[in-house]
Nucleic acid binder design. Sequence first.
DNA 1: CTGTTAGCGCCTTCAT
DNA 2: ATGAAGGCGCTAACAG
Lengths: 326, 326
Amino acid sequence: MITIRDIAKRAGVSASTASRALNNNSRISEATIKKVKKIADEMGYLPDYNAKNLTNGEANAVGVVFPVGSETASNPFFINILSGINSELVKRQYSLSVAIANTDEALLENVRSMVVQGKIKRFILLYSKFNDAISEFLRENKLRFVVIGQPTSSNDFYVDNNNVEAGITATDFLLKKLHVKFPIFVESSNDWTYEQQRYQGFKKISNESLVDFDNVQVSSDNVEEIEKFIFEHPQIDGIVATDDFRGLRFLNYFKKIYPKKSLSIVGFNKSFPASLVQDNFHSIDVFPDQMGIKTVILLFSDRENQEINIKKHLIVSHKISDEIGF
Amino acid sequence: MITIRDIAKRAGVSASTASRALNNNSRISEATIKKVKKIADEMGYLPDYNAKNLTNGEANAVGVVFPVGSETASNPFFINILSGINSELVKRQYSLSVAIANTDEALLENVRSMVVQGKIKRFILLYSKFNDAISEFLRENKLRFVVIGQPTSSNDFYVDNNNVEAGITATDFLLKKLHVKFPIFVESSNDWTYEQQRYQGFKKISNESLVDFDNVQVSSDNVEEIEKFIFEHPQIDGIVATDDFRGLRFLNYFKKIYPKKSLSIVGFNKSFPASLVQDNFHSIDVFPDQMGIKTVILLFSDRENQEINIKKHLIVSHKISDEIGF
DNA sequence: CTGTTAGCGCCTTCAT
DNA sequence: ATGAAGGCGCTAACAG
């Protein structure tokens, strides 16, 4: 292994000068900085992270925390977020360390160990919820973290879509392009913030367009309610669903009761290949990879981008697409 | 921060004795080991990973490598594998470091950096393919790694399901329980090894049961072929699909042509909530979390389990379930 | 069985 | 602008 002393020797300088040169220390002359870097390059020098981390008292890693419980976690777009995150981390010579567990306690223990033993100082939370022990722990320890979704504390950094706007986009498309007359908003029974916001957008456009509308919660345990709802609303001709899966489920219930009727659908997340569904199925892409990218940018804004530095959040755009596909 | 010297002082021993005691070094007496550990516990001592790693020349992290390209990556069960992996890693005081990228080159660079700069010595590959630069790099550097899926080199460690058996289970269920007379095997056009193996199982049972059968590839770009196939095989009454998505897609094509007919389906991965589909839809759970767990066990078998030590692979069981759900 | 000493690779204070 | 020296926390060789 080639160390900083090796380059120092070759460059005819001391190890400390070499170290400073490689870190662009202002006290070193341009000339020697250039020389040292050139030699380091030639010799294929790569710093040892563990040594660096030990002296710095800080790891070059970001902790990425998954939500507890696979309900949410089964979402394929976590992978895309990870991919976006890592693409930005490698640029900064940082690595991606994962915290994932089945219980809140185990997860907190995982994060705590990352902080205390691993010296990790920056975190990304792939979820956001109230009274979250992880967030509280990070706040107490004054560690920088960014959540994906709406923050629960006004001081938290976050990256999110504009979900009200997304709801508007979806509903607008449904009414104007697909000429739906009686739209329904299909959500989960979890009352997620992003669902509430998309519903706001839905309601706004429906009201403006003077169409009748309604909303319904589709979850595994209220099948009869849903069927009753569909039965009582035979005029439904289109839906906005808070995710593609829920939209598809509603479609299936609907088809069961009205096999001949068809439904226009706008869902979210581009979860399916276009060919999976027969009906007029559209989906809104929320660009999870972009969310990952912006999360990292925000996470490091204290050291880097001064314009962003003041901001506490970044918004990722969305786009409706006819072609749904993996 | 509380260091090993602090406990040493308090215990009235030297730092090296304290270190050895905490690592259960055989040269230290039971008495002092117990005493040192007790004090360490009281003082809430937790070792600094970066310092440990520096002296050990090896990081307490496992590199988990994702496949390039989101086609495969969109599979939600990666999250479950991660969860299984991490549950075993925390027991060993190891952390999970992710390598994920959009190109082969970037991914290799990522892994290379983990090895050279991060001193990571153990890896898990969430895929398996021929002529893989990553695997070759790891082999060259004599690093221990386990692949999930069928290995491409006979020397590689791997964890997988018994996919022939799984194909048998699926087909058996379809024929014996669901009384299907003309089953079809639905696969992708990628010719994945696990698909070939499941097809073997399918063929075996179909032959034994003396039923007619056939197979078809369902991908996005051969819609006409599929429809032609369905049109020419009106007698189809059940399918085994290599994954739930593909099964659902086939069902939709089928319904388009024969709206009145119904189909029995056995898919894989438990990707959908039961209520998502109207027809007789079953799915085989391949227990991704178990795959993660066993992968780690195998990855550390050199230091730990002597029985497993000889083995180069571990097989995870599967189970067919009527209730499909998240 | 235990203590002393040195060193992993890097950074940083303190000199010059 | 650069060098020398010391230390981050831990482990291991060497000594007793």
